[in-house]
Amino acid sequence: MRLGESSWVWQRYGVTVAGEQYANGVTVHGRSSVTIDLNRECTAYDAMAGVDDLTLGLGRVAFSVYADGERLWRSGTVEGRQAAVPVHVNLTGRRVVRLVAEPGTGFDAPALADWADSRFTCR
């Protein structure tokens, strides 16, 4: 992860979205960007994207996954108390991944957004 180019990140165990608990995940603010250098051959990124239950049902966030500057996946708006949406992105031949969360409004920027069960498939 490029620390100097990434927003605040909280790597956690026991992430909860809409009452569903996930073993682990990465929590960010509703307005965030996290850049990851793959440093090896990876074929996929998978996660469940949603608004963390610590936000008490408040907040609306849209999630996107970019690779080498190209957006490969977008969730649409996910609201607090809404089930997390599945993320699957083909990363074959890609070098840099950027996970982006965008708030629905300016008031949603401090919401906690989760990339639950976040994992890369690499060789």
Rank of each mutant, 00 (worst) to 15 (best):
R2W: 12
L3Q: 14
G4Y: 01
E5P: 01
S7M: 07
V9R: 00
W10K: 05
Y13F: 15
Y13H: 15
Y13P: 01
G14V: 03
V15D: 11
V15N: 05
T16G: 00
T16D: 00
V17E: 00
A18H: 13
G19E: 12
G19F: 06
E20H: 04
E20F: 01
Y22E: 06
A23T: 08
N24M: 10
N24E: 15
V26G: 06
T27N: 08
V28H: 01
H29Y: 08
G30T: 09
V34R: 05
T35N: 00
T35D: 00
N39H: 09
R40I: 01
C42T: 03
T43M: 10
A44G: 09
Y45A: 13
D46W: 03
D46M: 11
A47W: 04
A49S: 06
G50F: 15
V51E: 04
V51S: 05
V51P: 04
D53I: 13
L54N: 14
T55Y: 01
L56S: 14
G57P: 10
V61F: 09
A62F: 02
S64R: 15
D68K: 14
D68T: 13
D68Q: 13
G69W: 01
G69F: 02
E70A: 11
E70G: 03
E70R: 12
R71K: 14
W73L: 07
G76W: 07
G76T: 04
E79W: 04
G80V: 10
R81V: 08
R81D: 11
Q82M: 11
Q82G: 08
A83D: 12
A84D: 06
V85E: 14
P86Y: 01
V87Y: 08
H88N: 14
N90Q: 04
N90L: 02
V96I: 11
V96M: 02
R98V: 05
R98N: 06
V100S: 08
V100Q: 12
A101G: 09
E102T: 13
P103C: 07
P103L: 05
P103Q: 06
P103I: 05
G104K: 07
G104L: 09
T105V: 06
G106I: 10
F107P: 10
D108T: 09
D108S: 10
A109F: 07
A109M: 11
L112S: 12
D114L: 02
D114Y: 03
D114F: 03
W115A: 02
A116V: 11
D117L: 02
S118R: 03
S118M: 07
F120A: 05
C122V: 01
